[in-house]
Design a protein around this nucleic acid. Structure first.
Length: 219
DNA sequence: TGTGTCAAAGCGGGCC
DNA sequence: GGCCCGCTTTGACACA
C-alpha cells in the first residue's frame, strides 16, 4: 500500500529509508484523492473556520443541524510533505514551532500535534517490527547452534560411557584394562586416546545479540 | 459491493 | 494544565 501520500521515514541506525515518491507519488494525478485535497483547504466551511474542516459536533447540534459526523480530514500532499520535513528535523515540537507550523499549513495546532503523535507511534511500530524480525533471526540461529551443541554433548557422553578400547601401537590389538592408569586430577581412567576432530571447540558465532557490539546492519 | 488497510482523531492515564 | 503515550474508533480509500 503506502499510497496515501504519507511515507514513513525511520531513523534507525543501520537503515536508511528513502523518501521514495517525493512529489511523484501515485496519487497526484486524476484520482479522487486530489478532489479531497481541494476540499480540505477550500474556503467551503464557513467564514470563521475555513482553515479548520473539523467543526465540533456540539456546534452543529446547537445550530439545529443534523448531528452528522464531520468529514474526516485527509491531509494534502503538500501538508504531509511539510509535516514530514519538520518531523525529520525534530520528532517533537515546542508550542511555538507547533503554532508556526499550524499557521503555515492552515491547520489547527491540535491537528499538528496529533499528526506528530501518530507519526511517532508509526515510527515506533516500524522499529518494533524490525526489531522483532531481527530477534526472530537470532532465535533461529541460536536454536540451530543449541541443537548442534546438544548433539555434541550426546556424542561426548556416549564416548565417556563406552569402555575404552585403545589399540596397541605395536600389535594393533586392544590393550588390556590393566594397562590403563587413573588420572590423579580428574580421577578417570585415561589412555592415549587421540583427540577427535569433532570434539574441537567450535568457533563462536560471529556476533551475539546480547553483546554490546551488535553489528550495525541489524537495524 | 464487501473487505482490508491506513491515518486522523478521541479518550484515558501518567508525567512534569 | 499541558503534553505525551497507548489504545481505540472511525472515515477514506484501494482493491478483488
Amino acid at each position: 500500500m503506502g499510497d496515501h501520500g504519507l511515507e514513513l521515514t525511520i531513523a534507525v541506525p543501520g537503515f536508511s529509508s528513502s523518501s521514495g515518491s517525493e512529489g511523484g507519488g501515485c496519487n497526484n494525478n486524476g484520482n479522487n484523492y486530489n478532489m479531497r485535497e481541494l476540499d480540505i483547504n477550500q474556503p467551503a466551511f464557513g467564514e470563521d473556520e475555513m482553515e479548520f474542516p473539523m467543526g465540533s459536533i456540539e456546534e452543529e447540534i446547537e445550530e439545529g443541524r443534523e448531528a452528522q459526523r464531520p468529514k474526516k480530514l485527509r491531509l494534502s500532499k503538500e501538508q504531509s510533505r511539510l509535516l514530514e520535513e519538520s518531523f525529520r528535523q525534530n520528532h517533537t515540537l515546542n508550542p511555538k514551532q507547533k503554532e508556526a507550523l499550524a499557521m503555515k499549513l492552515k491547520l489547527r495546532p491540535r491537528q499538528v500535534e496529533v499528526w506528530f503523535q501518530n507519526r511517532r507511534a508509526r515510527t515506533k511500530l516500524k522499529q518494533t517490527e524490525m526489531e522483532c524480525e531481527y530477534l526472530k533471526r537470532c532465535f533461529g540461529s541460536l536454536t540451530e547452534e543449541n541443537r548442534r551443541l546438544q548433539r555434541e554433548v550426546e556424542e561426548l557422553r556416549a564416548l565417556r560411557m563406552a569402555p575404552p578400547t585403545v589399540l596397541s601401537p605395536h600389535t594393533h590389538q586392544p590393550l588390556p584394562a590393566s594397562s590403563f592408569t587413573m588420572c590423579p586430577r580428574c580421577e578417570r581412567v585415561t589412555a592415549a586416546i587421540p583427540v577427535r576432530a569433532s570434539a574441537a571447540r567450535p568457533q563462536p558465532p560471529a556476533f551475539s545479540p546480547f553483546s554490546p557490539r551488535r553489528p550495525s546492519a541489524a537495524f
